[in-house]
Design a protein around this nucleic acid. Structure first.
Lengths: 219, 219
DNA sequence: AAAAAATTGGGGGTATCCCCCCATATACGA
DNA sequence: TCGTATATGGGGGGATACCCCCAATTTTTT
């Protein structure tokens, strides 16, 4: 038996979902919530396998709810539902733990499929949503490239130093690891600050991560 | 007329692609390269609209080639081709400027479609590849969550301070903006270091970005 | 071959960060 | 209601980062 909680402030829509699911023997709608806080409350005293979560909840947004749920109720999987096929909504809630994203015009067959898929631990996305995400990934790339049309080329040694900075090593430690002088590392740091147009270490790290300057290795 | 450059170290495969494209009047295969450096050389003296790039090139990898091409030859669009539907390959080359990714078992119809799509400035991915990416996004999420099972809750004020740190403000500047004492901000910094298990500002910023702690606003 | 960039290193100084100790008041949760 | 977390603030000090000046050598690019 799969316990499902519906979180949507549109009563009519919540009813619709519930009536669709009602006919399925293996599924039980254990509750309905109209806002974020009541979802959290409900989960504290009930077992829920799948949370059908509207992204655009009033008050506490769906994103925050999702974050909270995946952090504190690990046995509950979130399947996001939204009226909008907006790239920002999709990526945002996926980055906060949702296992799937479907649109409100989804038919009953696809709804069941999505629920089963998410329930089995896999992720599910409507085809339209998938398209949107792929486009979004590209847009994000080109947009970030436009904002900083050409950031100066970072040399091999500077890249090394930057990588070690991101690993929280101090200048002295970096010097030791690279077998060069403290002063040399300071030179590289200084050049990095100038090239990346950063004021301090924080900016160095942020810009490096935003522009994917340091290939991350597995550790 | 669309100029296409094929970069693949497997001669037989490059021949196959070329022979498929030869029959299309609007397409002209202007060259074939067997390794990365020769691609760069070729682009320096030729106009190429689309680069069909094998991800797994010997010597200079396809990822590096792609990075170089999108950085320095902005009029050339990269369509990645690979034998492997590997999530790491796909995301890596997409993050380095490729506009599309297709597999080597792609048929001629889909090949033309991919070329046209990329040529028009949109991105193209085989269905299989799309599935792989979506799964990968999820995996990446759950994996990163496992590595740091539960990082302590960051309070509202700490989040504010952390956000300003990432914007490269100094402790004194943060104190001024929040109308609190320098010492208070230092307390928050100190608590953040302890909670996030970081050694210094670099770690603070890296961990914040890795865990998506600071909602980025548009500027 | 000449110019530019990268790599190396130093002196000296200030700003900032990070650390230890401490305290008070408020708010939140068990 | 009683602890824990949060937010506030202070003294003092050592470590680190950042800044200015500078220069020699090597590598890369033009």
């Amino acid at each position: 038996m799969t316990n499902i909680l519906i979180a949507d402030d549109h009563a009519m829509f919540a009813d619709g979902i519930a009536s669709i699911l009602k006919n399925e023997d293996s599924i039980k709608v254990v509750g309905r919530c109209l806002d974020g806080p009541s979802v959290i409350d409900f989960l504290k005293s009930n077992t829920v396998d799948i949370l059908l979560l509207d992204v655009n909840l009033p008050g506490m947004s769906g994103i925050d709810v999702c974050k909270e749920v995946t952090a504190n109720f690990k046995s509950t999987k979130v399947l996001a539902i939204s009226m909008f096929n907006e790239e920002s909504f999709v990526t945002e809630i996926l980055n906060n733990g949702a296992m799937g994203y479907i649109l409100k015009n989804t038919g009953r067959e696809e709804l069941f499929l999505a629920i089963d898929t998410v329930l089995s631990g896999k992720s599910y996305f409507s085809d339209d949503v998938t398209q949107t995400i792929m486009k979004g990934l590209m847009k994000q790339r080109t947009a970030s490239k436009k904002s900083q049309p050409e950031l100066p080329k970072i040399s091999r040694r500077e890249t090394e130093v930057l990588g070690l900075i991101m690993k929280e090593f101090t200048t002295q430690e970096i010097a030791d690891q690279l077998f060069i002088s403290l002063k040399t590392v300071e030179s590289h740091r200084s050049n990095l600050l100038a090239k990346l147009n950063a004021r301090n270490t924080a900016g160095l790290v942020r810009i490096a991560m935003e522009n994917n300057l340091i290939p991350k290795e597995e550790g």
